[in-house]
Design a protein around this nucleic acid. Sequence first.
DNA 1: GCAATTCCTACCTTTTCAGTATGAATTAAA
DNA 2: TTTAATTCATACTGAAAAGGTAGGAATTGC
Lengths: 141, 141
Amino acid sequence: MKLTNKGRYAVMAMADLAQFKDNGPISLTDISLRQNISLAYLEQIFIKLKQENLVKSVRGAKGGYVLESPPEEIKISNIISAVDEKIKTLNCKKESKKGCNNKSSKCITHNLWDQLDQHINSFFEKVKLQDLVKKNQMVDR
Amino acid sequence: MKLTNKGRYAVMAMADLAQFKDNGPISLTDISLRQNISLAYLEQIFIKLKQENLVKSVRGAKGGYVLESPPEEIKISNIISAVDEKIKTLNCKKESKKGCNNKSSKCITHNLWDQLDQHINSFFEKVKLQDLVKKNQMVDR
DNA sequence: GCAATTCCTACCTTTTCAGTATGAATTAAA
DNA sequence: TTTAATTCATACTGAAAAGGTAGGAATTGC
Ligand code: FES
Ligand code: FES
């Protein structure tokens, strides 16, 4: 059970945006340097964040990205799901795919994983982007 | 973020053992058929469960596996960790490996993942094997 | 003795992750 | 108006992990 870099990077980058939100559009180059994430990889991540309306982009020189909402309104769950970091704990069979339920009934652990799923999601729902920034306050560059 | 089959199978198999614990040693063939898991794969899983003293084995014909403790004393966390299903949410750099903390300080999301880790682990600590069996009571075969 | 079983270890196939590479489109500023 | 900085779009690749399979040895009840 592990978190992927894509999800982790997405949250890091969003936290970076929140931290420097008063500096106008933040370029991915800046984020790349500050957070130590490959620029090209960040680009791919931001395509998705933009599609989900978490950020908006400003093209051209001096461009970059800006948060669409204030940090206290952005939930971690929004970020995670935007980059396709689904929580996959269940493994039920569906439409001719393989899965763990035989004989058309749920497996013995189905309920357990379902609860785990909810447990994790409730964590992501509870935490806002703002919570990250507060705890890591630092002087402006 | 997903749960692997190895962990899922381990819990399914242990739940099966709990369910039929009064039938003497349960062979992996039985579990394989009931839970629809490959026999050879189950064998590998049970090596680990045995190493961690969650089950004991009875070799030879009419052999199989038996729980080492009553189902109400076995935590899901014990099972998950026995089969190396670590919860990997953090990504700190360690000993010349790559990681997300540059400049010898923790990244902005470190605390978040650390809390998530604890959140998930507390779930696994809370649930006992017995809880699974109760919810899925079925008549003996 | 034989069949059922655990034990052991090597190998294999597929998928996913994590990132590179390349180039086009856009735009502020010199 | 050129240049440099940027986002946008997409294809590719290498490595690792997941999810098994395969084959056989050791043990033991009947
Ligand atoms: S997880 Fe849904 S049937 Fe097993
Ligand atoms: S998770 Fe520990 S430094 Fe990023």
